[in-house]
Design a protein around this nucleic acid. Sequence first.
DNA 1: ACATTTATGCAACATAGTTGCAGAAATGTT
DNA 2: AACATTTCTGCAACTATGTTGCATAAATGT
Lengths: 136, 136
Amino acid sequence: MADLNHILKTHGLRTTAIRREVMQYFLNEGKAVSHQDVEGAMPKADRVTLYRTLAALEESGIIHQVIDDDTVKKYALCGTECSGDHHHDNHVHFKCERCNDTVCLEDIKIPHINLPQGYSVDSGNLLLMGTCKSCA
Amino acid sequence: MADLNHILKTHGLRTTAIRREVMQYFLNEGKAVSHQDVEGAMPKADRVTLYRTLAALEESGIIHQVIDDDTVKKYALCGTECSGDHHHDNHVHFKCERCNDTVCLEDIKIPHINLPQGYSVDSGNLLLMGTCKSCA
DNA sequence: ACATTTATGCAACATAGTTGCAGAAATGTT
DNA sequence: AACATTTCTGCAACTATGTTGCATAAATGT
């Protein structure tokens, strides 16, 4: 609890019950979750508030968007290095095609890629798909 | 024209005016386009037909989905090696944050990544973001 | 040129996400 | 602790995106 409040404060957000609950949900899941997932887990909470909560957590650098092959937005908790102005979520994501879970592989970084003259790269997103440990 | 018909036939699709127009649009754009883009370019065509046209072209391996940080689906033409059952779009995609265009870098392949024991990888998707040649 | 199969266009529906605004809760100040 | 200020929450309405069912039209096979 106190932890969660501290994270919120250090990221410039007010401490509210909903934000703590959403963050706790992220901690429990340990995988990328969508707005719909959050809504399912917190049926009493207002849809719109949850959209805005996710947006606030993302803008402040507490969660980051996980790019995935389906069209709903998904998010996961950022590592401790993230802050609002500078996300460092340059790790690889893995989506299991059996259980459909997408997870962060925090230890595996996106390799540097050489591009032709004229391109400059700021950030990247690498999604690997296949079968995860639990489904193998 | 004849070319487009040939491509459609070799991928097991019937040759229709709309499919040729959509394919021609892909050829002209040379970048990843969304349903909305196609609709804008072909205002007379029916929305639903365009959704189904894109789905048919994707399933048959003529176009492939380009994963991007925004949530609308985008597609681009596949290289010649693609067929319905086996897509080979394992090249890198680049999204320019100024012009917002996403392009295929056909010559740059996704590098092999070593994952921990238990993961098996079937396919991957690498999106690099930054500034493109024209916007530099 | 005819029968069969598949594609198109329309209406209605379903899902995902946004905006405006009033009341509630959190924070800063005294 | 009480107040003023700022920000958050919850509701209603709305926009955008994508899907399904079905009748008609067009493409293919014989």
